[in-house]
Nucleic acid binder design. Structure first.
Length: 440
RNA sequence: CGGGGCGUAGCGCAGCCCGGUAGCGCAUCUGCUUUGGGAGCAGAGGGUCGCAGGUUCGAAUCCUGCCGCCCCGACCA
């Protein structure tokens, strides 16, 4: 992409409404535009990151055996009356009336709807286990939206729903998601720590929050140091291996880890002082087992092998991709701007033409741009008529992992400079060497 | 929902107390000079001063109501 033809509205100054770093940087980097309190438009650069995140989420959901579908944002109030949540869910639910005075709502979550879909088709234990997920916009009318994307009212959510004939099966489904989540966040360059969680208004008794550590995190968290380098399950982990998955989950729940509201000071103090981690964190995922909470009232039943009809055992599993965009920035930035982990970066490489109009410089840039693009490397070419300083500042701000600085000074020696955003390391090399390095 | 604050050009702000018809920096446009860490000079365009009412000869400024946004707290799959 040529920057001169792209839509990247960089802000030199920070809009005053933005206080948290991710919000500030997203606005300045031209990723995001606020349209109302807690409601945002993703501009092209932000949208690319969101899509990268969604792709990783999808790949790991699919790998675990979950199946993607897409449910609507608008739901019928009647559906929610079946579970009893229409009255229970307070003002956070955005209620809408259509032209025929039918009561509708903008979904804050989809347990009722997925249960309705399930019960319409699935009647036998032979069709289980089943895990259906979608990635869809949700709306929760928070009293006080804040922190930009971190706590918006409209947000993108991946929510998966598992169905099993009994609790043991549900436990395995839960473990699949647990392992998929460990992999998902690790692939985004994040250290996530599963923490035992309150199950909240959803109910149930088996629940973990996945927290990533960031100094600017929203809440205080406490955990054992061992979590910082526990091995993440490999890509070829066998999701059908019940005992194997249980071992992974057991390992990842073997140490102390809790958010402030679940914190057990005595248990934490049993950890040797040098092994204690007290930090700030951001919740990026939450998984629940809630048994028959919805299947029983909504009559989602299946036949067992011995011919009985039983309500299915379910769990739900959320990840917030839009929140993750912000969370990743909270966890990965410096004074100059964002530092994207490569797997979620909007572009992998940014070429900085330091002297547009200089034949050698233009030529080297064009060659780099064409060859990298031809090899499928996502490349942003800063071909604007700007001074070098402005280009450096822009590149650092938007945080593309690799910058190639091309100017007459280096080219006189036959070199361009490759800068690694995360480490700040710069290395002069030939155009060929840069291509070889970056096309890997 | 309680407390605090803000709304003046795309962004950041001054002007408001003490009423006289709007200004600064950045950004934008034009020209010239410049070109390895957010350039310089000269010129230009851009504003129903959040909205509505009121007071006044006259309101960005004073009064009333409303709307929007932010921060702290409570709240929070």
């Amino acid at each position: 992409m040529r920057l001169s033809r792209y839509f990247l509205p960089i802000l030199r100054e920070t809009p005053k409404e933005a206080e948290v770093v991710s919000h500030r940087l997203m606005l300045r980097a031209g990723m995001l535009r606020q349209e109302a309190a807690g409601i945002y438009a993703f501009l092209p650069l932000g949208f690319r990151v969101l899509q990268k995140i969604c792709r990783i989420v999808r790949e790991e959901q699919d790998r675990s055996g979950a199946i993607e579908l897409l449910m609507p944002t608008i739901q019928s109030a009647d559906l929610w009356r079946e579970s009893g949540r229409y009255d229970a869910y307070g003002k956070e639910m955005l209620r809408i009336t259509d032209r025929h005075d039918r009561e509708m709502l903008y979904g804050p979550t989809n347990e009722e709807m997925i249960t309705e879909i399930f019960r319409a088709y699935v009647k036998s234990y032979k069709d289980l286990p089943l895990n259906l997920y979608h990635i869809q916009w949700k709306f929760r009318d928070e009293v006080r939206p804040r922190f930009g994307l971190m706590r918006g009212r409209e947000f993108l959510m991946k929510d998966a729903y598992s169905f099993d004939v009994d609790q043991a099966g549900a436990r395995h489904s839960y473990n699949k998601m647990f392992v998929a989540y460990l992999r998902t966040f690790a692939r985004m360059g994040l250290k996530s720590i599963p923490m035992r969680a309150e199950s909240g208004p959803i109910g149930g008794n088996l629940s973990h929050e996945f927290i990533i550590l960031a100094s600017t995190g929203e809440s205080e968290v406490f955990c054992h140091k061992d979590y910082l380098d526990m091995p993440v399950p490999p890509a070829d982990v066998d999701f059908d291996d019940v005992a194997g998955l249980q071992r992974i989950v057991d390992q990842w729940t073997s140490r102390y880890a809790a958010t402030a509201d679940m914190h057990d000071v005595a248990a934490f103090n049993d950890i040797p002082p040098d092994q204690r981690v007290s930090a700030r964190g951001i919740e990026v995922g939450h998984i629940f087992y809630f048994g028959t909470k919805y299947s029983a009232p909504m009559k989602a039943t299946v036949a067992t092998p011995d011919g009985r009809e039983v309500p299915v055992h379910s769990g739900s599993y959320g990840i917030g991709p839009s929140r993750l965009v912000a969370a990743i920035i909270e966890a990965s930035h410096d004074e100059s701007g964002i530092i994207w982990p490569e797997p979620v970066a909007p572009f992998k490489v940014m070429i900085l033409n330091l002297k547009r109009g200089d034949a050698a410089t233009d030529g080297a840039c064009e060659r780099l741009y064409r060859d990298l693009s031809a090899q499928g490397v996502e490349t942003l070419y800063d071909d604007r008529d700007e001074r070098p300083g402005a280009k450096f500042a822009t590149a650092d701000l938007i945080g593309i992992p690799w910058q190639v600085l091309v100017g007459p000074r280096g080219l006189a020696e036959g070199k361009v400079e490759v800068k690694h955003r995360a480490s700040g390391r710069r290395e002069p090399m030939s155009v060929e060497a840069a291509l070889a390095l970056l096309a890997r």
